[in-house]
């Protein structure tokens, strides 16, 4: 069953174009120049019940705007969206009781009070039965290991602890749909890992539908089978994570270790040499010619060890981002020039 259905969704803003300098500022008092920013330019997307989908895209691509549209925080300029059968920007209570939004950059807990007090407020606003509330609260705080911090003022918590409390606040009413906007931003590796494990566990257990935006490939790789890449307000890829490499990562990296400790001078005839650290070397080759390259090298030189790898996902994605939203049909079949590895 489709939980989220988006059709032609678009959002543009008119922003005041401020110029530098005092004189320009004074002129701006009388005559203002506006510019239209098209944050989201017609998105179509369907998400099924129980999916965990990642939104990837550079800053300003329209990821957060899309999540805000789906949460009903802002209204679209054009297009349609239905989440759980509701029009989000009608802001009906029946809809608002069934989803949650967590933003890594903003906090909703009372800053000066212990998280427990904010949770109690949530209980009342969402009208959660006391026994169910206590059960959820205890379960979530134990899973995230923050039970002992419940009575400590939020301002005294570390960023990671606070983020966990934010997550708990969002999940107390057992939402069916969860929007996560960079939930691990600024967190250390351990906190990131803990939150990832928690999200994976929770999603598997409850089968809820989650949309996640993140800049950390590790989050995405750990959690999401489906990836939607947005650039300049448009969806340019919608499919599996491994599919990205198949589709855009047109090259492979061949790592070699030579027995005699010397790197052959004519290695460049097989592909671009990206690393020379005797006895090791790496060359980048078109994935279609990997077999020929390997047999050529193995026939001509004494090789101790060989491996063939996909280019790092970050590099592939960065390449896609840098092309900034050209329609996908222009990209198919092209072999991207990968970022140099060190």
């Amino acid at each position: 069953m489709a939980i989220i259905e988006i059709e032609g969704l678009a959002k543009s803003y008119r922003v005041y174009q401020k110029k530098e300098g005092l004189r320009a500022s004074i002129r701006g008092l009388f005559r203002r120049q506006y510019r239209t920013v098209e944050a989201v330019r017609g998105i179509d997307l369907t998400v099924e019940q129980g999916e965990f989908v990642a939104f990837l895209g550079p800053n300003g691509a329209g990821k957060t705007t899309t999540l805000k549209l789906l949460s009903g925080v802002i209204t679209p300029t054009a297009g349609e969206a239905r989440v759980l059968g509701h029009l989000p920007w009608k802001r009906e209570n029946a809809y608002r009781r069934r989803f949650a939004l967590v933003m890594g950059q903003k906090n909703q807990l009372w800053w000066d009070l212990p998280a427990a007090e904010s949770f109690r407020l949530h209980q009342q606003i969402y009208r959660i039965e006391p026994s169910r509330f206590e059960r959820s609260r205890d379960e979530l705080t134990s899973l995230l290991g923050v039970r002992h911090l419940l009575s400590q003022p939020v301002r005294e918590l570390s960023l990671g602890e606070r983020m966990k409390m934010e997550l708990i606040a969002a999940l107390l009413h057992s939402p069916d749909v969860l929007f996560l906007d960079e939930p691990t931003i600024g967190l250390d590796v351990i906190a990131q890992y803990n939150i990832q494990s928690f999200l994976r566990h929770y999603q598997e257990l409850r089968k809820i539908t989650i949309l996640l935006t993140s800049h950390y490939m590790k989050d995405v790789a750990a959690l999401c089978r489906r990836v939607v890449i947005i650039a300049a307000g448009r969806i340019i890829y919608n499919g599996s994570l491994s599919g990205i490499i198949n589709r855009y990562g047109g090259q492979k990296v061949v790592s070699l270790q030579f027995i005699d400790g010397r790197i052959p001078a004519d290695l460049a005839r097989f592909g671009e040499v990206i690393l020379e650290e005797p006895p090791r070397a790496k060359i980048r080759v078109d994935r279609r010619v990997v077999p020929e390259v390997l047999s050529g090298i193995l026939a001509g030189y004494s090789v101790e060890d060989v491996s063939v790898e996909d280019p790092p996902l970050e590099a592939v994605i960065a390449e896609i981002f840098s092309r900034n939203g050209e329609p996908p049909e222009h990209q198919v079949g092209q072999i991207p020039e990968l970022l140099k590895e060190e």
Partner: peptide, 9 residues
């Protein structure tokens, strides 16, 4: 930050 207020039922 009004975002959060708008989410509440």
């Amino acid at each position: 930050s009004l975002d959060f207020a708008l989410l509440k039922p």
